[in-house]
Design a protein around this nucleic acid. Sequence first.
DNA 1: TAGAGCATGTAAGGCGTTACATGATTTC
DNA 2: GAAATCATGTAACGCCTTACATGCTCTA
Lengths: 170, 170
Amino acid sequence: MGLLHEKPSSGYDLRKIFSSTSMGSFSDSPGAIYPALERLEKQGLLRAKIEEGSGLRRRKVYRPTPKGLAELKQWLESPLTRDLLIRSLSEVMLRFAFIEAVFDSAAAIRFLQQLKSLLLDFIPELKAQLDMLRGKIPLSGRLALECGIKGYEAQLEWASAGIKAYQEEK
Amino acid sequence: MGLLHEKPSSGYDLRKIFSSTSMGSFSDSPGAIYPALERLEKQGLLRAKIEEGSGLRRRKVYRPTPKGLAELKQWLESPLTRDLLIRSLSEVMLRFAFIEAVFDSAAAIRFLQQLKSLLLDFIPELKAQLDMLRGKIPLSGRLALECGIKGYEAQLEWASAGIKAYQEEK
DNA sequence: TAGAGCATGTAAGGCGTTACATGATTTC
DNA sequence: GAAATCATGTAACGCCTTACATGCTCTA
């Protein structure tokens, strides 16, 4: 939906995008894409338009309906939760990637600030867990937890830098 | 399989583990776990033993068969690829988490070294991509790519620190 | 004896995967 | 005219999700 809002496209276009860039690892298989587009059309979130003109074979170009755009906006605006951060960082980044095109840079800043405060709460808790576990678990377990913490710290720095970058842009 | 090698368990035990710790986000639903255990048993990778003794209700405790352990080892030993790193960091960390229990700390060091050399190749390429894209894509797109790079850099540092930690342990 | 927790399971529906099928158009 | 590429689809199969079902055991 985000991609189609930026540029109305056919299933084949989406396949090319998914197979060339490793977009959060979406499937580029036709058996996934075409039925999914049909489902979204049936739900009234997308509308297809058949293009014939340009000498090539017919293409079905999809674009979001007003209802679809509303759903997309709702998804982008839904509050970030710790749960989402743990289970699906890729979804968080996907939302960030589309937020500027659907709203504006102010919305992107708000998103980054939300992410930042979530991380500022979360990281100390993880460190506390790590301290409690010290000595009780094998080295590999401790290291794995540390890897997670380092990753979140890197994200925190990144979010701060991102906020600055947006503010300097203006 | 990794969990069952560390400690033979029932489906209920696994559900508790998956719901309490957020283990790479495995599903704790009975409709996922019980059929999966049955499939693995049918494939000859697990063997179930019914425990009755301790006054509680019957429990089916699963443990890997020799064939299952061999498969587990093969999975843990299969070479790390860039593709896996991009698509499923959680699988990489899962493998690391079990490698010490199934093999030994020397294997864990080898794993970290493999990860390190993969990252040393990969990070400069990502940076080159970022440079090429500079000015051509919206700020949010550039930032998203930067977030990925920072994450990989954090992992690289972590892997180096991990190797040191193992060497000091000895 | 009612309820909470232990423990295993089943059924319907949804969606992704792999693999195959089809036909149009461009290129050599 | 053969092969590659464009472009859309279908079918079988597998697995997960949600929700429901079952029955045992311990505690109040």
